[in-house]
Protein backbone atom coordinates (compact mmCIF):
# COMPACT_ATOMS: atom_id res chain seq x y z
CA UNK A 1 0.00 0.00 0.00
CA UNK A 2 1.32 3.35 -0.97
CA UNK A 3 0.65 5.13 2.27
CA UNK A 4 3.49 7.51 1.76
CA UNK A 5 2.23 8.55 -1.66
CA UNK A 6 -1.25 9.18 -0.38
CA UNK A 7 0.01 11.22 2.47
CA UNK A 8 2.08 13.35 0.15
CA UNK A 9 -1.02 14.30 -1.82
CA UNK A 10 -2.64 15.52 1.34
CA UNK A 11 -1.72 19.08 2.11
CA UNK A 12 -2.15 19.83 5.78
CA UNK A 13 -2.20 23.57 6.19
CA UNK A 14 -1.41 25.59 9.28
CA UNK A 15 -5.01 26.71 9.62
CA UNK A 16 -6.53 25.37 12.83
CA UNK A 17 -10.09 24.08 12.34
CA UNK A 18 -10.80 22.79 15.82
CA UNK A 19 -8.95 23.52 19.00
CA UNK A 20 -9.58 22.02 22.43
CA UNK A 21 -7.88 23.77 25.32
CA UNK A 22 -7.83 22.26 28.80
CA UNK A 23 -11.27 20.76 28.18
CA UNK A 24 -12.93 18.82 31.01
CA UNK A 25 -16.26 17.09 31.08
CA UNK A 26 -18.20 15.33 33.82
CA UNK A 27 -21.29 13.14 33.80
CA UNK A 28 -22.54 13.94 37.31
CA UNK A 29 -19.49 13.21 39.45
CA UNK A 30 -17.87 10.99 36.86
CA UNK A 31 -14.93 12.70 35.17
CA UNK A 32 -15.26 11.55 31.53
CA UNK A 33 -12.77 13.81 29.80
CA UNK A 34 -9.69 15.03 31.62
CA UNK A 35 -7.79 18.07 30.48
CA UNK A 36 -7.99 17.46 26.73
CA UNK A 37 -5.70 19.58 24.56
CA UNK A 38 -5.64 19.07 20.82
CA UNK A 39 -5.60 20.95 17.55
CA UNK A 40 -7.04 19.79 14.25
CA UNK A 41 -5.55 21.40 11.16
CA UNK A 42 -7.31 21.92 7.86
CA UNK A 43 -7.08 18.85 5.67
CA UNK A 44 -5.92 16.64 8.50
CA UNK A 45 -7.23 13.11 9.00
CA UNK A 46 -7.25 12.08 12.64
CA UNK A 47 -8.11 8.66 13.96
CA UNK A 48 -9.13 8.34 17.58
CA UNK A 49 -8.96 4.91 19.14
CA UNK A 50 -9.04 3.42 22.59
CA UNK A 51 -10.93 0.94 24.74
CA UNK A 52 -14.69 1.37 25.00
CA UNK A 53 -15.80 3.85 27.62
CA UNK A 54 -12.59 5.85 27.37
CA UNK A 55 -14.42 9.00 26.26
CA UNK A 56 -13.50 9.08 22.57
CA UNK A 57 -17.09 9.36 21.30
CA UNK A 58 -17.89 11.92 24.00
CA UNK A 59 -14.94 13.99 22.86
CA UNK A 60 -15.99 14.25 19.24
CA UNK A 61 -19.61 14.81 20.28
CA UNK A 62 -18.37 17.82 22.25
CA UNK A 63 -16.92 19.24 19.04
CA UNK A 64 -20.42 19.98 17.65
CA UNK A 65 -21.93 20.39 21.09
CA UNK A 66 -24.12 17.32 21.11
CA UNK A 67 -22.52 17.10 24.55
CA UNK A 68 -21.67 20.11 26.69
CA UNK A 69 -18.29 20.48 28.36
CA UNK A 70 -17.96 22.07 31.76
CA UNK A 71 -14.46 23.48 31.71
CA UNK A 72 -11.93 24.69 29.15
CA UNK A 73 -12.44 25.96 25.62
CA UNK A 74 -13.54 24.40 22.35
CA UNK A 75 -13.01 26.61 19.32
CA UNK A 76 -14.44 25.46 16.00
CA UNK A 77 -13.75 27.47 12.85
CA UNK A 78 -12.87 30.40 15.07
CA UNK A 79 -16.12 30.25 17.06
CA UNK A 80 -15.97 29.33 20.70
CA UNK A 81 -18.65 26.85 21.77
CA UNK A 82 -20.49 28.36 24.71
CA UNK A 83 -23.98 28.25 26.19
CA UNK A 84 -25.09 30.79 23.60
CA UNK A 85 -27.33 28.58 21.50
CA UNK A 86 -27.79 31.03 18.65
CA UNK A 87 -24.32 30.48 17.30
CA UNK A 88 -24.37 26.72 17.58
CA UNK A 89 -26.62 26.07 14.57
CA UNK A 90 -24.22 28.00 12.37
CA UNK A 91 -21.23 26.05 13.70
CA UNK A 92 -23.05 22.77 13.17
CA UNK A 93 -23.81 23.55 9.52
CA UNK A 94 -20.08 23.41 8.88
CA UNK A 95 -19.53 20.12 10.67
CA UNK A 96 -20.85 16.92 9.18
CA UNK A 97 -21.46 14.07 11.59
CA UNK A 98 -21.86 10.38 10.87
CA UNK A 99 -23.22 8.22 13.67
CA UNK A 100 -22.72 4.61 14.62
CA UNK A 101 -26.46 3.95 14.27
CA UNK A 102 -26.76 5.95 10.97
CA UNK A 103 -29.71 7.96 12.35
CA UNK A 104 -31.33 8.43 8.97
CA UNK A 105 -34.85 9.84 9.13
CA UNK A 106 -37.04 6.77 8.54
CA UNK A 107 -40.14 8.69 7.40
CA UNK A 108 -38.30 10.35 4.50
CA UNK A 109 -36.86 8.84 1.34
CA UNK A 110 -33.12 8.74 0.76
CA UNK A 111 -33.41 11.82 -1.47
CA UNK A 112 -35.53 13.71 1.08
CA UNK A 113 -33.05 12.80 3.83
CA UNK A 114 -30.29 14.42 1.80
CA UNK A 115 -32.26 17.50 0.71
CA UNK A 116 -33.87 18.36 4.03
CA UNK A 117 -31.09 20.40 5.60
CA UNK A 118 -29.97 22.16 2.39
CA UNK A 119 -33.57 23.26 1.75
CA UNK A 120 -34.58 24.21 5.31
CA UNK A 121 -31.27 25.37 6.75
CA UNK A 122 -29.36 26.74 3.77
CA UNK A 123 -32.58 27.84 1.98
CA UNK A 124 -31.52 26.31 -1.31
CA UNK A 125 -34.12 25.92 -4.07
CA UNK A 126 -35.48 22.37 -4.22
CA UNK A 127 -34.10 21.69 -7.72
CA UNK A 128 -30.60 22.76 -6.75
CA UNK A 129 -30.67 20.73 -3.53
CA UNK A 130 -31.84 17.65 -5.41
CA UNK A 131 -29.18 18.01 -8.07
CA UNK A 132 -26.50 18.26 -5.40
CA UNK A 133 -27.96 15.34 -3.46
CA UNK A 134 -27.95 13.10 -6.55
CA UNK A 135 -24.34 14.07 -7.15
CA UNK A 136 -23.32 13.01 -3.63
CA UNK A 137 -25.51 9.91 -3.73
CA UNK A 138 -23.81 8.87 -6.96
CA UNK A 139 -20.47 9.45 -5.31
CA UNK A 140 -21.30 7.05 -2.52
CA UNK A 141 -22.66 4.71 -5.21
CA UNK A 142 -26.23 4.69 -4.06
CA UNK A 143 -27.81 7.01 -6.66
CA UNK A 144 -30.16 4.32 -7.92
CA UNK A 145 -31.80 3.96 -4.48
CA UNK A 146 -32.74 7.63 -4.10
CA UNK A 147 -36.49 7.00 -3.93
CA UNK A 148 -36.34 4.20 -1.38
CA UNK A 149 -36.89 4.60 2.33
CA UNK A 150 -33.97 3.96 4.72
CA UNK A 151 -35.74 0.88 6.10
CA UNK A 152 -35.45 -0.76 2.67
CA UNK A 153 -31.65 -0.49 2.57
CA UNK A 154 -28.90 -2.61 4.12
CA UNK A 155 -26.81 -1.23 6.97
CA UNK A 156 -23.87 -0.42 4.73
CA UNK A 157 -26.12 1.38 2.25
CA UNK A 158 -27.75 3.35 5.05
CA UNK A 159 -24.40 4.47 6.39
CA UNK A 160 -23.34 5.60 2.90
CA UNK A 161 -26.58 7.60 2.63
CA UNK A 162 -25.79 9.13 6.03
CA UNK A 163 -22.37 10.20 4.72
CA UNK A 164 -23.98 11.69 1.59
CA UNK A 165 -26.54 13.50 3.77
CA UNK A 166 -23.74 15.16 5.74
CA UNK A 167 -21.81 16.06 2.60
CA UNK A 168 -24.87 17.82 1.15
CA UNK A 169 -24.32 20.61 3.69
CA UNK A 170 -20.82 21.14 2.23
CA UNK A 171 -19.17 20.82 5.63
CA UNK A 172 -15.56 21.80 6.17
CA UNK A 173 -15.06 19.12 8.82
CA UNK A 174 -16.48 15.59 9.03
CA UNK A 175 -16.84 13.75 12.33
CA UNK A 176 -17.26 9.98 12.26
CA UNK A 177 -18.43 8.30 15.44
CA UNK A 178 -17.61 4.59 15.00
CA UNK A 179 -19.22 4.54 11.53
CA UNK A 180 -18.65 0.82 10.94
CA UNK A 181 -19.26 -0.63 14.41
CA UNK A 182 -22.93 -1.44 13.78
CA UNK A 183 -22.34 -3.06 10.39
CA UNK A 184 -22.07 -6.67 9.31
CA UNK A 185 -18.47 -7.56 8.38
CA UNK A 186 -19.17 -7.78 4.64
CA UNK A 187 -20.57 -4.23 4.62
CA UNK A 188 -17.69 -2.54 6.41
CA UNK A 189 -15.56 -2.31 3.31
CA UNK A 190 -18.11 -0.42 1.20
CA UNK A 191 -18.35 2.26 3.87
CA UNK A 192 -14.60 2.44 4.42
CA UNK A 193 -14.06 2.81 0.65
CA UNK A 194 -16.28 5.87 0.64
CA UNK A 195 -14.40 7.29 3.60
CA UNK A 196 -11.03 6.66 1.93
CA UNK A 197 -12.26 8.51 -1.16
CA UNK A 198 -13.33 11.39 1.00
CA UNK A 199 -9.97 11.44 2.77
CA UNK A 200 -8.15 11.48 -0.54
CA UNK A 201 -10.10 14.57 -1.57
CA UNK A 202 -8.64 16.49 1.33
CA UNK A 203 -11.59 16.61 3.70
CA UNK A 204 -10.73 17.37 7.31
CA UNK A 205 -11.79 14.22 9.12
CA UNK A 206 -11.91 13.09 12.71
CA UNK A 207 -12.84 9.47 13.02
CA UNK A 208 -13.43 7.32 16.06
CA UNK A 209 -12.92 3.77 14.89
CA UNK A 210 -11.57 0.33 15.68
CA UNK A 211 -10.63 -0.27 12.03
CA UNK A 212 -6.86 -0.22 12.34
CA UNK A 213 -6.35 -1.05 8.67
CA UNK A 214 -8.27 2.09 7.78
CA UNK A 215 -6.22 4.06 10.29
CA UNK A 216 -2.99 2.90 8.68
CA UNK A 217 -4.27 3.78 5.20
CA UNK A 218 -5.60 7.28 5.66
CA UNK A 219 -4.59 8.76 9.01
CA UNK A 220 -2.20 11.66 9.38
CA UNK A 221 -2.30 11.26 13.12
CA UNK A 222 -3.55 8.59 15.50
CA UNK A 223 -4.74 9.57 18.95
CA UNK A 224 -5.01 6.90 21.62
CA UNK A 225 -7.27 7.61 24.58
CA UNK A 226 -7.76 5.77 27.83
CA UNK A 227 -9.81 6.68 30.92
CA UNK A 228 -10.72 10.10 29.57
CA UNK A 229 -7.19 11.17 28.70
CA UNK A 230 -5.15 11.41 25.55
CA UNK A 231 -2.44 8.86 26.25
CA UNK A 232 -0.50 8.87 23.03
CA UNK A 233 -0.52 10.82 19.79
CA UNK A 234 1.65 9.92 16.83
CA UNK A 235 1.82 9.36 13.09
CA UNK A 236 0.41 5.95 12.14
CA UNK A 237 3.74 4.28 11.24
CA UNK A 238 5.28 4.99 14.60
CA UNK A 239 2.05 4.51 16.48
CA UNK A 240 1.58 0.96 15.24
CA UNK A 241 5.21 -0.15 14.96
CA UNK A 242 6.62 1.60 17.99
CA UNK A 243 4.02 2.48 20.58
CA UNK A 244 5.51 4.42 23.46
CA UNK A 245 3.23 3.95 26.44
CA UNK A 246 2.49 0.67 28.10
CA UNK A 247 -1.26 1.20 27.85
CA UNK A 248 -1.03 1.69 24.09
CA UNK A 249 1.06 -1.45 23.77
CA UNK A 250 -1.48 -3.49 25.73
CA UNK A 251 -4.37 -2.09 23.65
CA UNK A 252 -2.66 -2.77 20.33
CA UNK A 253 -1.64 -6.28 21.37
CA UNK A 254 -5.28 -7.03 22.11
CA UNK A 255 -6.79 -5.78 18.88
CA UNK A 256 -4.12 -6.50 16.25
Amino acid sequence: MSNAQQREKNVVSDEVMIELKGMNKWYGDFHVLKNINMKVYKGERIIICGPSGCGKSTMIRCMNRLEEHQQGDIIVNGVELTDDLKGIDIVRRNIGMVFQQFNLFPHLTVMENCCLAPIWVQKKPKKEAEAMASMFLDRVQIGSQADKFPGQLSGGQQQRVAIARSLCMNPSIMLFDEPTSALDPEMIKEVLDVMVDLANEGMTMICVTHEMGFAKTVADRVIFMDAGEIVEENNPEDFFSNPQSERTQTFLSQIL
Partner: peptide, 22 residues
Amino acid sequence: PRGQYEAAEALGLSYWKSMFLI
Protein backbone atom coordinates in the same frame (compact mmCIF):
# COMPACT_ATOMS: atom_id res chain seq x y z
CA PRO B 1 -34.76 7.47 19.58
CA ARG B 2 -32.26 10.03 20.89
CA GLY B 3 -30.28 9.60 17.66
CA GLN B 4 -33.04 11.28 15.62
CA TYR B 5 -32.82 14.42 17.74
CA GLU B 6 -29.02 14.33 17.50
CA ALA B 7 -28.99 13.83 13.73
CA ALA B 8 -31.35 16.80 13.33
CA GLU B 9 -29.20 18.94 15.63
CA ALA B 10 -26.00 17.88 13.88
CA LEU B 11 -27.45 19.06 10.55
CA GLY B 12 -27.97 22.52 12.06
CA LEU B 13 -31.78 22.38 12.20
CA SER B 14 -33.31 24.72 14.76
CA TYR B 15 -35.57 23.41 17.54
CA TRP B 16 -38.85 24.14 15.74
CA LYS B 17 -37.62 22.84 12.39
CA SER B 18 -36.33 19.62 13.86
CA MET B 19 -39.62 19.15 15.73
CA PHE B 20 -41.91 19.81 12.76
CA LEU B 21 -39.80 18.12 10.09
CA ILE B 22 -38.23 15.20 11.92
